[in-house]
Nucleic acid binder design. Structure first.
Lengths: 253, 253
DNA sequence: GTGTTTATCGTCAGGAAGACGACTATGATC
DNA sequence: GATCATAGTCGTCTTCCTGACGATAAACAC
């Protein structure tokens, strides 16, 4: 087989799909849009769209993220967090039958965002919402008789599942959990992020010792807050460290 | 922008490129093929080729792997090791200018193989060889006046670098290092794999304690060998465990 | 036999994490 | 204003894991 033969290559459509995760009311939620057209009309799907002819993959993902959420994405290599989300490539899905109409290869990206106001619907999707990932992935199961109980369109359940697993494992050994927090946050708020993403309860005392004892993870801003009730808590910003060594240990599993 | 509009999508070429790694003579090596045609004619590149119209991405990668090495690839989810290599998706590269002729999106895959006899050249590549990754990535640097000192074609240096980094980090927390070993191997041989991939020296006694003390990592076959010289060493096969918990710690960095 | 090489077992100190007690500083309630 | 509930913060103790390194074992080369 002759590689890169410009005269005879099978044409593909290339899209980006986004797994946008946030933590709302102690639950890990993903952004879902309702499809307005066939196939899978009326079903929920991940936001996404075609890559433009002269657009890089990461640029396409960032553009879709802005269109859907208004979030400004940061480069994967500069994990600063201003009013933006963390964005990284997740994986690529190219089963020949994943789209019944034509051959579509989708480069999925993962975005982590702090809790936001209502999502803004893109021009093409007639509605968008944050939904708990458990509900989105519970296929036909436990959900109320809600449109949420229907499976996601295309192979988006698989993509979402892979994105959630990436997020779950990545907060173990990186400081990425701070991407779910506002610019200033307390140790307790960060702990609730871990608890929501992992679905477990963590010991507040050991967690406090761990995160405050890891150099470069958190830097105190000097302020305090009582927005969570109880005794006032110190406010922190994310420090420069991106890798946690030793990592945060996820209980049992 | 209307997603999945079959009447108006920009056509892309989709390829798979392979980072095939092995350990030869205590060095981490990658499979490189010499390009027989323009662009980058005569330069070294990663093996790869077009995805066929009705072929899944992983199937295309497995096919290319067989064509280049004769290795039978295993499914990423069934990490058994018979006469086959570990194969997993690495990342996707889609810079609009990465191929000067047309828009090509390449889904790179990472393969880990035991030390093999000479690679077999595919029909399209006039030569193929194992080369130390250090030499392939040393752009214009230290190499002898060898064709190896020229940078790899396209963005393949970046792809190879990402693949090597993935391998380096993945053997920390998984049993994947056994994919570099023959079906039966000794603790010392496994240690030399880690040393070659990480480029460090490990304490033989602590390494032995770690790998033999991790349940499911190694299972003794009962046999022994002296092929490394010295006192006879027990032979092991890879156990069922795929995740190492706690992980193997990489010194310093 | 002596030396060299590799494998394997053991010991010890230091660090990190889980379990959990205790105290502190707010707001809510009586 | 006293009491209570809530959340945050500091310690202690035990256990496990790792790194450093001594010691022994079993082959081969001479």
């Amino acid at each position: 087989m002759s590689p890169y033969d410009p005269s005879a290559f099978p044409p593909f459509a290339v899209t980006v799909d986004l797994v946008v995760l946030t933590v709302r009311r102690h639950a890990l939620c993903a952004l879902a849009v309702r499809r307005g057209e066939s196939p899978f009309q009326g079903r929920w799907a991940l936001p996404g769209g075609f890559v433009r002819p002269d657009e890089d993959l990461s640029a396409a993902a960032a553009r879709e993220l802005v269109e859907e959420t208004g979030l400004c994405a940061h480069d994967p290599d500069s994990p600063v967090q201003a009013n933006g989300a963390h964005l990284e490539q997740l994986a690529t899905y190219g089963d020949p039958k994943r789209d019944p109409r034509m051959r579509v290869v989708s480069v999925a990206h993962l975005a982590l965002a702090p809790d936001l106001p209502a999502p803004r619907a893109g021009g093409d999707a007639n509605s968008a919402r944050w939904a708990p990932v458990d509900a989105l992935l519970a296929q036909g199961g436990y959900g109320r008789e809600d449109e949420q109980a229907t499976p996601l369109a295309f192979d988006h359940a698989q993509i979402l599942s892979d994105g959630v697993e990436r997020a779950r494992s990545k907060i173990e050994y990186s400081s990425l959990a701070t991407a779910f927090c506002p610019p200033e946050f307390t140790v307790g708020e960060l702990r609730r992020v871990y608890e929501a993403v992992w679905g477990v309860a963590l010991d507040p005392r050991n967690f406090h010792r761990k995160v405050t004892g890891t150099p470069g993870f958190l830097v105190p801003t000097g302020g305090t807050t009582t927005r969570q009730g109880g005794r006032p808590a110190q406010l922190f910003r994310a420090g420069g460290a991106t890798l946690l060594n030793p990592p945060m240990l996820r209980p049992d599993v």
